[in-house]
Simulated scan of single mutants.
Amino acid sequence: MPKVENGAAPVGLQFGKEMGTLALPGEEIGKLVDTTPPHGLQSPQDQKRAVVRLGSGVTQRGSSLLSSKAGKVCFDGRRNKTWVENNQKRYVPALEDMVIGVVEERHSEDVRLDINGTDTATLSSLAFEGATKKNRPHLDIGSLIYCRITRASKNMEAEASCIEPGSNKSWVGGEALYGELKGGNVIQVSLGLARSLLVPNGPVLTTLGAKIPFQSAVGVNGRVWIQSSSTEHTVLLSIAIAKADTMPADEWKAFVKKMLEQAT
Rank of each mutant, 00 (worst) to 15 (best):
A217M: 02
N155W: 06
T246S: 14
S238F: 00
E251A: 04
V186P: 03
L191S: 08
A244D: 07
P200F: 04
C147K: 05
V220L: 10
G222D: 08
T246H: 10
L205H: 04
A242S: 09
E232A: 13
P213H: 01
K169E: 13
E251K: 15
I239R: 13
K211T: 12
G166L: 13
W171N: 02
P137T: 01
D245I: 00
K243C: 02
S196P: 00
G222W: 01
S230D: 08
A176E: 01
A249M: 14
E164H: 12
N168V: 10
D250A: 14
P165Y: 03
V220H: 03
A176W: 03
L193T: 13
I187M: 14
V235H: 08
A158N: 07
Q227F: 02
K211I: 07
A194D: 12
G209I: 12
D245G: 09
E232L: 07
I187T: 10
L177N: 06
E251V: 07
T150W: 03
G183V: 03
N185H: 08
R148D: 00
T206F: 11
A160Q: 02
T206G: 05
I187Y: 09
S167Q: 05
A194N: 11
N135F: 01
V218K: 06
Q188I: 00
I226Y: 10
M156L: 11
D250W: 02
V186F: 00
Q215F: 06
G179L: 04
A249Q: 14
V235D: 12
S238V: 03
K133I: 07
Q215K: 01
A158M: 02
P213C: 02
A158E: 06
G202M: 14
M247W: 06
G142P: 10
P165E: 07
E164K: 15
L144A: 02
S153H: 11
V220E: 12
W225G: 08
M156V: 15
G202A: 04
E180M: 00
T206M: 11
N155T: 15
L193S: 12
K243M: 04
N221M: 13
Q188E: 08
S161A: 01
E159S: 13
N201L: 15
N155P: 03
T234Q: 14
V172C: 07
K154Y: 11
L193V: 10
L177E: 09
L139N: 08
T207P: 15
Q227M: 15
S153W: 05
N201R: 15
I241S: 11
I187L: 14
N135M: 06
S229R: 11
G166Y: 10
N185S: 08
